[in-house]
């Protein structure tokens, strides 16, 4: 059970980082919305699970936060990638691609030539 949660948290974290890389600084609500959209509305997550993830990323130093004003003129807390975060995104993306490549080879039947 714990492993699944960890993996999930890890996946979520990567999604957050990637979102921030693509979209630039964004508030929590915006990140959640964006993740939902990008995943093709397949992923129905509780928006609440985002916040512990954001906190962890901030503690690890991959993102930093700042209060700003949203589109609707509301005060909101904006998150932004740090340089360490940028590096982390690239590394983790590569990691994932490698993992999926390996799995692909295992899971798709292929003749050994």
């Amino acid at each position: 059970m714990a492993d699944r949660a960890d993996v999930w948290q890890g996946t979520l974290a990567l999604m957050v980082l990637k979102t921030l890389e693509t979209m630039g600084p964004l508030h929590g609500y915006g990140i959640a919305r964006r993740i939902e959209q990008t995943s093709g509305d397949v992923l129905a997550i509780n928006y609440g699970t985002l916040y512990p993830s954001l906190l962890k990323l901030e503690q690890e130093g991959y993102i930093e936060s700042e209060w700003g004003v949203s589109d609707n003129n509301r005060k909101a807390k904006f998150y932004r990638l740090t340089s360490a975060g940028r590096t982390q995104v690239h590394e983790e993306t590569r990691e994932w691609e490698r993992t999926t490549a390996i799995l692909e080879r295992f899971l798709s039947p292929r003749e050994q030539s």
């Binding site: 609500y29 928006y47 916040y51």
Partner: peptide, 9 residues
Amino acid sequence: LELDAHLQM
């Protein structure tokens, strides 16, 4: 406050 803002948005 952050949650509040989130909900409002």
